[in-house]
Design a protein around this nucleic acid. Sequence first.
DNA 1: TTTT
DNA 2: TTTT
Lengths: 145, 145, 145, 145
Amino acid sequence: MSVNKAILVGNLGADPEIRYMPSGDAIASIRLATTDRYRDKQSGEMKEITEWHRVSFFGRLAEVVKEYTRKGSQVYVEGKIRTRKWQAQDGSDRYSTEIAALTLQLLGGRPSGDRGDSRNERGSQQTGSRHSMGENEIPDDDIPF
Amino acid sequence: MSVNKAILVGNLGADPEIRYMPSGDAIASIRLATTDRYRDKQSGEMKEITEWHRVSFFGRLAEVVKEYTRKGSQVYVEGKIRTRKWQAQDGSDRYSTEIAALTLQLLGGRPSGDRGDSRNERGSQQTGSRHSMGENEIPDDDIPF
Amino acid sequence: MSVNKAILVGNLGADPEIRYMPSGDAIASIRLATTDRYRDKQSGEMKEITEWHRVSFFGRLAEVVKEYTRKGSQVYVEGKIRTRKWQAQDGSDRYSTEIAALTLQLLGGRPSGDRGDSRNERGSQQTGSRHSMGENEIPDDDIPF
Amino acid sequence: MSVNKAILVGNLGADPEIRYMPSGDAIASIRLATTDRYRDKQSGEMKEITEWHRVSFFGRLAEVVKEYTRKGSQVYVEGKIRTRKWQAQDGSDRYSTEIAALTLQLLGGRPSGDRGDSRNERGSQQTGSRHSMGENEIPDDDIPF
DNA sequence: TTTT
DNA sequence: TTTT
């Protein structure tokens, strides 16, 4: 009865931060930049505005983030928008919004013909996770369309 | 390294068709209409064009489609675009494109204050499935943002 | 080089709020609820969590929101995620995140062929706006695929 | 009242093809590959399946495709799914499905701070078009959230 | 504060 | 026919 989806393509502003739950499950957190260009109505000039998104990854997806992304990496992320309420030291309410990621795709694959050096930020294309694996679970091999 | 996603909101043109695999797994198929309005460049008139999408659902999601949708139902569908090749009787190649659904949301909930009769097309709001369940598997209860 | 997209389907928690810029342009603001259901790991029970989104609409789209939505309305919204920084009275920094809407679709409409009465909350299916009109501007009438 | 959206991230299988309407408007067409990995139920092995999408771009967006993409380029595309009916030489009906693109983002860009040489396939990050420009037209400079 |  |  409802849909809550964020789709982001952007670059990491810093290396991912990883921490672990008492259960041992990993949580990775990144800051992701997206930039819009628009023409300013007053001046008529092109301007750009960068939005910084806080994105969290859980479980196996967090391990992938840890291993295969770093500052500057370009990624595709799909997730849910979540706002949590917390109390500041003075007891006042504060709100913080983040994207709880469900899917990750590492971007920036070299086009054929490009023979750049390979101090590549991507060691592999692994993605997926407990949370996104469903995406591939259609039984392709036995579907009689 | 790639994304293949379709997002559709539309109405079923007919009741869903269900069939079963030898394994017992259900496959549901619907025809979904989406309509675009646009202004015709020549005449300046508003016109509309309806696109009919073939959407297939697998496993538990197919059972939900069978039970909770019928001709006219409004649904939100997320899935993958797939084109299969098949041979016509004369041996020539043919291609058919469909959406392999991964998520379903039943739409058309009544707004509060509406006290319409309830020969409602929706008996419940169940959705999800083996294929979409991942969406809800974020461990909300133990995430220290 | 980047994508910043939110896709929401939910219900308005209250009637929309409209205000006007000095230029006369309308801005509409709604609170939109999306609800996730998940199974609690500890108790094994189904739980649900509701997320409240602040969504803003500009220009013509704001007028559509004003005229065709109200508390309880079910809508599809597409937009950008934006976080602005502001100063609290004590001078400390605060952050607030919202969705700047680019597309609106009113949901819950009757499929064609349904001849129900029309004390419908929606007087029409108008959507679009200066911001989303591009969606329909593909010259369908003269595309030789 | 409906949504018809495709979101694709993939690589071009060949250089784009450009043609021009009698009106002078450009139409660019590409073949875009997306690849899914999944575990085969019978063998337990990882397999992959590649889907080839036909994507068409119109007007200014077609010019961007012509100028900034080639075989192997990685792109993000958003558009509508469209199926047209046509007659084969024997008079029988055939159907062909394509994505009519509304947005293009060139991927694989270097993060800021990277000072690589620039015999880059992308001379710039231009995207947008008559059809997608709306995306940036939110009047950021005068929105009092 | 919505919806089911 | 791409990409990894």
